[in-house]
């Protein structure tokens, strides 16, 4: 197994270099280029513009720019965000915790509901429960996120004000924005209050994301389970007189989970990207809105930073998925 992991990591290195080159040079094809960032600075003089162009290294040949960017990524510097005026690494790591808190919570809620619901719906095909799950899935999947988020916000934060309207913390309570030094000091002094505060802020955005995710993933699980329970080996297991519990959990489910694991491997890196619409509605200080704004502002270093981290995570989670297959499916062995 260790040999397999080592081989996969070695294989991933050229893949990541290739991705980095595609990202960097692909971005250069965008009309306007990074100098479009100046469009947002109407009063900037030509001298100041040239000075910043020089500072940003935009007056260098493209391949030099690429190598410098690559070097900065490898050395952990990650260059400087044009519009946030600080290092890309600092910007990403300032936003990442909020994104991960939201997305992981939403994902766990979603999977905790979607997987059992899909399994039960498959086992009780065409039952009332199955019909209900199907109905919910279609409704959930077809509801626009911005509408759902806004409705939940109005309902539970305005008309029946039991939950906060947005943000990750109540600044009136903490006195400082999330994860700043002052906030950290306050949190350490009031950990329970701080946790309850974050938890109350997470309910609405996590629910919004979870509803949409449940809708899709429960259908996926149902379909995969339906395939599995009609396989010959399941019929054989039943013929052997195994209990239904063993048939379902040991024989059908383990096989049904294989495509689900692949799906999860694809979905997990997306958690890093955040959710643009949900973050906007709930004023969540996460990666989704940051990426969108970087796109609007032609902030190439920040865009490249976010995309590169996404690429690394995708490669990494695909590796995890391959490892997970070996544990779930006894037919697969990397020994």
């Amino acid at each position: 197994m260790l040999g397999f992991i080592g081989r996969r990591i070695l294989q991933a290195i050229p893949t990541l270099f290739l991705i980095s080159a595609l990202l960097f040079f692909g971005m250069q094809l965008v009309p306007g280029g990074p100098e479009q960032a100046f469009a947002f600075r109407a009063g900037m003089s030509e001298a100041a513009r040239q000075s910043v162009i020089h500072q940003w290294g935009l007056d260098q040949p493209l391949y030099i720019q690429y190598l410098k960017w690559l070097q900065s990524m490898l050395t952990g510097n990650w260059q400087f965000s044009f519009f946030m005026h600080r290092s890309v690494r600092e910007v990403i790591f300032q936003r990442l915790p909020a994104t991960l808190i939201l997305m992981i919570t939403a994902y766990l809620i979603a999977q905790a509901i979607a997987l059992p619901a899909g399994i039960v719906a498959a086992l009780r095909r065409y039952s009332f429960f199955d019909q209900a799950v199907t109905f919910f899935s279609y409704v959930g999947y077809s509801m626009p996120t911005f509408w759902l988020g806004l409705m939940l916000l109005l309902l539970f934060a305005v008309f029946v004000p039991i939950l906060p309207v947005g943000g990750i913390v109540n600044v009136r309570l903490s006195g400082a924005p999330f994860l700043t030094h002052d906030y950290n000091v306050w949190f350490l002094q009031n950990p329970i209050t701080g946790l309850i505060d974050i938890a109350s802020h997470i309910v609405l955005p996590a629910t919004t994301i979870a509803i949409v995710t449940i809708a899709g993933d429960s259908r996926f699980m149902r379909s995969s389970m339906l395939d599995a329970i009609h396989q010959d080996y399941v019929r054989t297991a039943r013929a052997k007189g195994l209990s239904e519990r063993v048939v379902v959990l040991k024989h059908a489910l383990r096989n049904a989970l294989l495509p689900v694991v692949t799906n999860i491997a694809i979905e997990l890196p997306l958690l890093f990207s955040g959710a643009v619409v949900t973050e906007a509605i709930y004023s969540w200080p996460g990666m989704g809105q940051l990426f969108f704004q970087a796109l609007e502002a032609f902030d190439y270093p920040l865009l490249l930073g976010i995309l590169s981290v996404s690429a690394i995570l995708i490669v990494l989670f695909n590796l995890f998925a391959d490892i997970a297959y070996a544990y779930i499916d006894p037919r697969i062995s990397y020994a």
Partner: peptide, 24 residues
């Protein structure tokens, strides 16, 4: 990041920039 010395009635305690920014 943080104007350490100001002339207005308030001083910046914390500033998180970008979308969903907060300045205390």
């Amino acid at each position: 990041k943080k104007p350490t010395v100001t002339s207005g009635p308030y001083m910046v305690q914390d500033f998180t920039p970008g979308p969903a920014a907060i300045v205390t």
